[in-house]
């Protein structure tokens, strides 16, 4: 019985990470935006959910507001960073993550700062039901992104990734497309944050941690850039890989860092030895 509860727990978090990997891949793999702000969108979704549901707002409304919040954050980030590419975009989006973390730590009247927000109501009574809802959402997200990337919009996003100028002279508004990609990507990350907040029932500024960013990048790189199938498989594999560590009998103070080390090693190893991952056909440039 305890083991099946554990499996359900793993299933729920796997779904959440699959959503994060798919959405990161939309910006990173399909559009070629080196976005280190993805974890911030996740955190924004989680904080919006936590703060609003503590105010007693109904679930469906916090869910929609979290998604809209992510969308707005993505679009807001797209505006100032419109002219930045490559390393500079990476630095600016990383800066965005840090600013969001600093706000979460310091705007105490809203976020309770480092104390975090405990006692977030659960989405549904049982984890079985929760697994159903998050699986359903993940499937919808996966189908939506898969449709989007196969559509003419997705084709244009990939064209922009390969050659912005080439796309511009074919009449494509590069800024609008990049904003769209970042907005959709961010709103999905925020939806993952919504599920996270309701499942863990406690959040603090560590939701903006860079460790999780590396985790998401490892998932996308392992699965393969610009491959939705890859994001699903990469997300599940990377999330489940360190689970055996729990059974070896390490203390929890070792398991946390050991997980992070494993993710970092996988990421670096993939970049060095197999940069295209399992299903990827595209190089990060």
């Amino acid at each position: 019985m305890a083991f099946s509860a554990y499996l359900i727990h793993l299933g729920i978090l796997s779904c959440m990470y699959v959503m994060l990997a798919i959405s990161l891949n939309l910006a990173l793999g399909f559009t070629g935006m080196l976005n280190l702000g993805h974890v911030a969108f996740f955190g924004i979704g989680a904080y919006i959910t936590a703060i609003l549901s503590m105010q007693g707002l109904p679930l469906w409304l916090t869910c929609i507001l979290a998604i809209i919040g992510g969308l707005i954050a993505g679009i807001l980030l797209a505006f100032p960073t419109a002219r930045l590419r490559g390393d500079y975009l990476a630095l600016a989006t990383l800066g965005f993550t840090f600013i969001m973390a600093a706000i979460a730590r310091n705007w105490q009247s809203l976020t309770r700062g480092a104390l975090g927000i405990p006692g977030i109501p659960r989405l549904v009574a049982s984890n079985e039901q929760y697994l159903f809802w998050i699986s359903l959402s993940t499937v919808i997200v996966a189908l939506l992104v898969s449709w989007l990337t196969k559509s003419s919009i997705g084709r244009t996003l990939q064209a922009i990734r390969d050659d912005e100028l080439g796309a511009m002279v074919l009449g494509k508004n590069v800024f609008a497309y990049r904003m769209l990609a970042l907005g959709v990507s961010a709103s999905i990350a925020a939806l993952a944050g919504f599920f996270f907040a309701h499942f863990i029932t406690f959040i603090d500024p560590s939701v903006f941690s860079i460790d999780d960013l590396i985790l998401m990048f490892a998932m996308v790189i392992l699965g393969g850039l610009a491959s939705n199938k890859g994001s699903v498989i990469g997300g599940v594999i990377i999330f489940l890989l360190p689970e055996p560590l729990r059974f070896i009998g390490f203390s929890s103070s070792i398991v946390g860092p050991a997980r992070a080390i494993l993710f970092a090693l996988i990421l670096i190893g993939m970049l060095v030895y197999r940069p295209r991952g399992i299903f990827g056909k595209v190089d990060l440039s």
Binding site: R155, T156, Q158, A159, D162, D163, G166, A167, K172
Partner: peptide, 20 residues
């Protein structure tokens, strides 16, 4: 227009390039 050095979308197929 075209360019002095071709600017095809390198990860896309011929068809995808044309459909853009």
């Amino acid at each position: 227009r075209t360019f002095q050095l071709t600017r095809l979308f390198k990860n896309l197929t011929i068809k995808q390039n044309l459909l853009v």
